[in-house]
Amino acid sequence: MNLFKDANPLEKYIREVKSYLPRNSREDIGEELRANFEEKIADMESAAGEPLNNDAVIELLSDYGHPVRVAAQYQGSGKSLIGPDFYPYYRIAVLSSLGISTAIILVLLGIDLLYSLDIGDVSRLWMFVNTYIYIIGIITGAFVITERVMEKSGYLVSWSPNNSAPPNQAVADAWGAIFAVCALVTWLVILNLVNMNHSLSVLFGNTGNPFHTFVYWLKITTVLLIPQYFYQIFNQVYNKSRLYLRIGTELLLLVGCITTLLVDTAELRTTYPDLPEGLFTMFNWIILAFMVAIFIEIYVFWRKLTTIEDSGDDSDSDSGKESEINTKTEKENGAASV
């Protein structure tokens, strides 16, 4: 369709530019734009010695640029949702989370096909779409909030090596924390694909479905871990209270594992007689492996705690004293916790 076919091309162009401009300035800008064009057209006509035809005007307007682009120039750059400082990390966070979630969903779909399990109440296509929407939305929201909080607190401006982890660890640890937050958010979205009730009966295994019970405990601990890792992005040095909080979270997951192992699965097996025994065995082994990982993690954090207690220092992490320890084992710990 030719936009300029049966009308004055300049007027159509101005009208379209105006439609992309804020209401309070569109008339003024449109008027000025028209004046400048008319002046230019008069100049060209005087040089050519004849009036400009429509085709020449259309060419002139095409050279000037798309109305959207012209209007955007008048509105300035404005403030972007994710600023240039954070954008590279945001991009990595989104892409890696989408990659991880795609892999996990494909595995889940594979299991679903093999065992005919009801792993979700949505179609396979929507499983992907929903997950991607959640992940992009949550990560974008997290980055927007982080950036605004950092701006308000002047974190980036007032930063000093004295109130952070040692320079050779700080970058790696902040990256580890960003990765952990993304992985945990992705994990939470994946867990939400499981179609289940959120009741105390499910939590304590009274429904006889160990899968749902375990997913519920995982959700709770994931929700508790996200703010802890989020805080770690800005402050990579642990103090005693943070270590206690972390150990407490791990203990909670340990309780969840034990509760899951104690669930009586007889009713589930009766309801779904086709479920293979191997699935339950494999599930129990996964829980046991999880428990081993949790024990290791608790041990690591307990060691960190005793290091602080031995030195008799429970100062806040901002002091940057040597007795405070950084989180150099955070990456492997983070991996074990989920």
Partner: peptide, 28 residues
């Protein structure tokens, strides 16, 4: 000067700015 004459004046001294950049800049 007005927008178009400003552009021409700048062009005469070898400063060639696109109109789409110049006019919004002037308003800013």
């Amino acid at each position: 000067q007005y927008g178009y004459s400003l552009r021409k004046a700048l062009q005469e001294v070898q400063i060639d700015i696109e109109e789409g950049t110049l006019y919004p800049l002037v308003r800013r």
